[in-house]
Structure formats: structure tokens, C-alpha cells
């Protein structure tokens, strides 16, 4: 990258490091930090939407829907989340291919599961066999996002379900007394008031989500963990201009520090949001704020 990088073997330590950390491959690890941030930016609202759906389903009057919502919330609690990650990535992929197979090749006679193989017609493959590389990468990333959203949606559903129950009953009764319909009660009274109760749980969830991002590696995405293993491994002078012994430990130390800084910053921002939301609320924290002022 820099002009003095033409012959790395002659450089002193600082200049060598400056050159080493800006090689083309190192740019990939910096880009993958962007991948992580993008995953968070897409997954968080999507998971919240899934969670909202789950919480509403768990409160539904129609009992099969209610059972489905409660099952969705309960099952993720009892089973390790990475089991879900590994499961959904294959299951969703096969589900989408199966759907396309049903639509595109209705007169296909052979069974889809042949022994240990999952066979769909060529037109139903996802992505198509002749698709360019970036389509494959985007498809893999979207599967990962969807998987994260499903798993964290269940956690969010749990938090929102609790928050909806925490809204004082009297508020809803007042609305009913004024002749609000069930739907109006929900939209105008329940949803606006539940956020204060949901925020501690949701901020906890955000921290968990940050700490779950390295699991992208298990879903076959070339993320920071992948690049840290790749770049950190011992390199000999035959294959690279920058030979070095096994540095994976230092790369993972850097990742550790990155996550520590990230979670710490989030903590500070979330504390500020909480302080703003409790401002003027009739809660213990709001009362403490009033006395301090």
C-alpha cells in the first residue's frame, strides 16, 4: 500500500508492521468487520419484528396460534442456540429449494431425498449453478441473517411477551371503559407503553447478539474469525513477502479487544437511552433522577 513497501525484508519493525497490516488480505479482515456490523444492523430490526410477531401470536385468542407462539418462545430457551444455527442454515436452504422445486418442476418423478442426497431439479437450485460468486456469497449471508433473526426473534418474543404483561392492567381497563376495541387497545395503549418495560431485556439481548456474531463463522461466512485463523497461521518466505510464525493467538487477542470495546460502548449508549426513557417516569429510577436534579 505504501510506497516504501516494495521490499519488506529490508524494513525495520514499525515500517514492516505498517506494510504488513495493509496487505490485500488484511483489507479482507477489515471488510469482514463491516460484515459483522452489517449483520447487526439488519438482524436487530428483523429479530425485533420476529419477536413482535411471536409475542402477539403467544397472546392470540385463537388457540393453535397461541400454542405455536408459546412453542416458538419455549423451544429456543431449552436448546443451545448454536444447535439452531447449524440446523436452520441447512433446513432453510433445503426448504427454499424444495419450494422452488415444487413450483418450477411439477412433473419431476423421482423422490427428493435419495438415500443421503437431497436432489432437486437444476432450475430449482439456489443459487443457480451458473450464478456468479457474489450471488453465492449474498445468498449465504441472507441465510445467516434469517437464521439469526429466527433465533433472536424467539428471545425478543420472550422479552416483549413479558413487557406486554407488565403494562398496568388499569391502563387497558380504562381504554376498554372508553369503548376502545381490542385492536385499538392494543395499538394505542399497550404497544406504546410496553417499551419502557421491554428496554432492559432488549438491551441485554443486544449485548447477546453482539457476542453471537462470531458464530457467523460456523455458518460458512468468511467473517473475522475465518480471516483471523487464515492470516494468523504460520507463513513461510516461499509463499509470502511477510513470513511470520503462528500469530493466531495475537489475532484472536485483537478480536477479543475489539469485542470488549464494542460491548463497552454499547453499554454506555444503552445506559444513556435508559436514562432518557426513565426521565419523568413514575418508577424508582425516575424518582431518583428527580431527587438528584
Amino acid at each position: 500500500m505504501f510506497s516504501f513497501c516494495t521490499d519488506p525484508a529490508t524494513l525495520d519493525t514499525a515500517a514492516w508492521l505498517a506494510c504488513y497490516l495493509t496487505t490485500g488480505k488484511h483489507m479482507s479482515i477489515y471488510v469482514s468487520v463491516g460484515t459483522v456490523l452489517m449483520l447487526l444492523a439488519i438482524t436487530a430490526p428483523l429479530a425485533l419484528a420476529f419477536g413482535f410477531g411471536g409475542a402477539v401470536a403467544a397472546r392470540a385468542r385463537f388457540w393453535p396460534l397461541r400454542a405455536l407462539g408459546r412453542l416458538y418462545i419455549a423451544i429456543v430457551r431449552g436448546v443451545p442456540d448454536i444447535a439452531f444455527f447449524l440446523f436452520f442454515v441447512i433446513a432453510l436452504d433445503q426448504f427454499f429449494e424444495w419450494l422452488r422445486h415444487q413450483v418450477k418442476c411439477p412433473d419431476w418423478a423421482e423422490p427428493i431425498r435419495q438415500g443421503n442426497d437431497f436432489v432437486v431439479c437444476a432450475a430449482a437450485k439456489l443459487p443457480l449453478g451458473n450464478a456468479p460468486q457474489w450471488v453465492h456469497e449474498t445468498y449465504g449471508f441472507s441465510l445467516a441473517v434469517l437464521t439469526f433473526a429466527i433465533v433472536f426473534g424467539a428471545f425478543a418474543a420472550n422479552v416483549l411477551f413479558g413487557a406486554m404483561r407488565a403494562v398496568p392492567r388499569a391502563q387497558l381497563e380504562t381504554a376498554e371503559a372508553y369503548g376502545f376495541s381490542r385492536r385499538q387497545c392494543f395499538c394505542r395503549i399497550l404497544v406504546p407503553q410496553m417499551w419502557v418495560y421491554a428496554l432492559p431485556g432488549l438491551s441485554n439481548l443486544w449485548m447477546v447478539l453482539i457476542k453471537a456474531t462470531p458464530l457467523l463463522f460456523l455458518l460458512g461466512i468468511e467473517d473475522i474469525v475465518y480471516w483471523a485463523r487464515e492470516l494468523g497461521g504460520a507463513k513461510t518466505a516461499r509463499f509470502t513477502d511477510y513470513p511470520h510464525p503462528d500469530w493466531r493467538m495475537w489475532y484472536f487477542l485483537a478480536l477479543l479487544v475489539f469485542y470488549l470495546i464494542f460491548t463497552r460502548l454499547s453499554e454506555i449508549v444503552l445506559a444513556r437511552i435508559m436514562a432518557r426513557l426513565t426521565h419523568g417516569q413514575a418508577t424508582l429510577a425516575g424518582e431518583a433522577q428527580r431527587k438528584a436534579a
Binding site: K211, V225, M249
Partner: peptide, 22 residues
């Protein structure tokens, strides 16, 4: 408490493994 709660367990495993290896 801050170091172990603030970083992902997955990264801790990786770091520890390669640290022990070195």
C-alpha cells in the same frame, strides 16, 4: 468480570486454544 462478560465465549475459546498452543 468485565473481560469475560464483555467478550464472546467463542473468541475466548479460540484465543485460549492458540495461547496454550504457543
Amino acid at each position: 468480570i468485565f473481560v469475560f462478560r464483555g467478550s464472546p465465549l467463542f473468541i475466548q475459546f479460540f484465543f485460549a486454544y492458540f495461547a496454550f498452543l504457543s
